[in-house]
Design a protein around this nucleic acid. Sequence first.
DNA 1: CGGTCTCTTGACGGAGTTCAAAGCTAGTGG
DNA 2: CCACTAGCTTTGAACTCCGTCAAGAGACCG
Lengths: 190, 190
Amino acid sequence: MQLSLDEHINRFVPLSESEKQILSSFTKSQVVKRRGILLSNGEVSRSLYFVEKGCLRMYFINDKSAEQITQFALEGWWLTDFFSFMDNTPSDYFIQTIEASKLVSIDRLAFDELLKAVPKLERYFRIIMQKNLAASQLRTKYLYEMSKEEFYYHFSSNFPEFMQRVPQYMVASYLGLTPEYVSELRKRNS
Amino acid sequence: MQLSLDEHINRFVPLSESEKQILSSFTKSQVVKRRGILLSNGEVSRSLYFVEKGCLRMYFINDKSAEQITQFALEGWWLTDFFSFMDNTPSDYFIQTIEASKLVSIDRLAFDELLKAVPKLERYFRIIMQKNLAASQLRTKYLYEMSKEEFYYHFSSNFPEFMQRVPQYMVASYLGLTPEYVSELRKRNS
DNA sequence: CGGTCTCTTGACGGAGTTCAAAGCTAGTGG
DNA sequence: CCACTAGCTTTGAACTCCGTCAAGAGACCG
């Protein structure tokens, strides 16, 4: 499965050929190998990443020195630490590829200029951000209404392909539970 | 404290007088008394609300029949259930004023037409959604990194004015803890 | 004042964590 | 393409944070 940025944008706002050219002049395509680091703790998150193929995770190191994952990004998703990206401040996060991945990145300044050069993209990004916000509201609701056990079963039955692609301990971290407890749940359910 | 929508938009994109007129033709201003219901569980969230003055809460009823608050909105914030608003599907949420409030609302269809009529507003809403997303990422990080005790102290020391305006049990609900436990924390800390 | 929200107290229980140690698996380098 | 090893998963016992329940004390509004 693979999804080009052009194709993704086209789902929301059709671009002319010349606009596509401008777009590609402001973006960088890159292929990153498995477990490649795109952002480290303490750096400014200079880029916004679009996943054409592969999978990213964003995480920080908690007070127990463990990696705490807060977001994943699969094909067709954008990812960055938005506070750091917008305000040019150091991030607490790491962003890393889980698999070998094909990405498109836009730097902060290029992002501003791109939006000036192709105002139609304001609409595209407004829609993207709005969808992300909707997803985020739903996730928050799940966090409030489900026990950790329910949350795990909900996630694993709704995203079985994802469970294949990502190590169990990463899913556990994302769901806010310990690998040991996931282990117990799996045993209980088999 | 009061903040008009025009003023808020002007912080991000300056509008001409005629654009302001178009804006006001697509929006509705309303004054709502304390504890007024704007959206009920089962209805489609037809409007996006901007708070000029006052305070809103969004909540759902959980499996124990208790109100679970997921978001507040103070002056200068937009609020809706975005999934319901975008896809025209029934919402699980209630939206209610906590205090008597002055609001501006935009209906879903008017929202689309407004953005067509005043494309500059795509930029305004892109920025708003992006800021909301940043705030949402930060909140998620807090949920992962703090114990409930820490979360409570963090919140009450960072938003003391908010603690004055909103009943304790609502803050407790928003933070995901029981009024009983909040009570214990207050005792412990005095 | 009277009644309905709101907040407090304390005893108890359980979902989920922590720690330590052993067993398994899959990616890398030879 | 195999073997080695670092990384991942499992086990079980002890522990703890925080929710639940029930009951009472304030506080605020009509």
